[in-house]
């Protein structure tokens, strides 16, 4: 059938599979590095927003608002194509990770802030009354409780970062999508693109299901 030969052409798929796998590896690298940096920076921003002096808090709020507003594709293109004019030349990989991590950190900071605010005030008071320092209050008392609350939204955010790695193909990063479009051009057949789409779904669907289960589990814990 024509449809099968066009979209699900097995020989084309098998030919392109090695490059698609190489692309998947790049996608995973960009995704994981961006997620880890975004998590660390986001947590730092959320805690700093609680304890830092006023002007730092204002800067953090501004950061969060700006990077939640800017389209990721625009940021990526600015980082890759505009920054060289001021002498900052980042590789495609570094550009992709920079843009993804900056945006992810803004969302992560908001998620952590909501999680910390969801911990009852009595926990802060009990910690203070015992003489615990701010650092110990956070590390031993507040964050362990906040992190339980924010695992589902953090996982959601990680899924988004993983999906957004596809934008890196516009800065010549040989990720899964880029490899697929090149293979498609080479084979004059869209099957590699279909293959890439399936790989994205197979990669991320388990995480989506995991979030749903976690949310159910945590809601049950709330009685």
């Amino acid at each position: 059938m024509n449809i099968l030969n066009t979209f699900f052409n097995v020989p084309v798929l098998l030919d392109s599979l090695p490059v698609l796998m190489m692309g998947l590896l790049v996608t995973l690298e960009i995704g994981v590095v961006s997620i880890v940096i975004g998590l660390a920076l986001g947590l730092l921003l959320a805690v700093a927003r609680l304890y830092a002096p006023g002007f730092v808090r204002t800067l953090i709020v501004a950061y969060v608002n700006v990077f939640r507003s800017i389209p990721l594709l625009v940021l990526l293109i600015v980082v890759y194509y505009a920054l060289p004019f001021v002498g900052i030349r980042l590789s495609p990989f570094a550009s992709a990770v920079t843009a993804l991590a900056l945006v992810s950190a803004a969302y992560t900071a908001e998620i952590f802030r909501a999680g910390i605010e969801a911990v009852p005030n009595g926990q802060f008071e009990a910690s203070a009354a015992l003489g615990l320092s701010n650092r110990h209050t956070m590390v031993d008392v507040i964050l362990p409780q906040a992190i339980r609350i924010v695992i589902p939204p953090l996982t959601n955010n990680s899924i988004n970062v993983m999906k957004d790695t596809a934008l890196a193909s516009v800065v010549a990063m040989p990720d899964l999508l880029k490899q697929a479009t090149q293979a498609q051009a080479l084979a004059a057949n869209p099957t590699p693109l279909i293959g890439a789409a399936i790989i994205y779904v197979v990669l991320l669907c388990p995480m989506v299901l995991l979030v749903a289960r976690l949310e159910k589990h945590l809601n049950r814990g709330k009685r």
Binding site: P120, Q123, A129, L130, S133, Q145
Partner: peptide
């Protein structure tokens, strides 16, 4: 303040134990 708080214990109406 931390010094004072270390010498002054407090028991709350709502316990405020660390649930985790």
């Amino acid at each position: 303040l931390a010094r004072v708080r270390a010498e002054v214990g407090m028991v709350f109406q709502s316990f405020n134990l660390f649930p985790h």
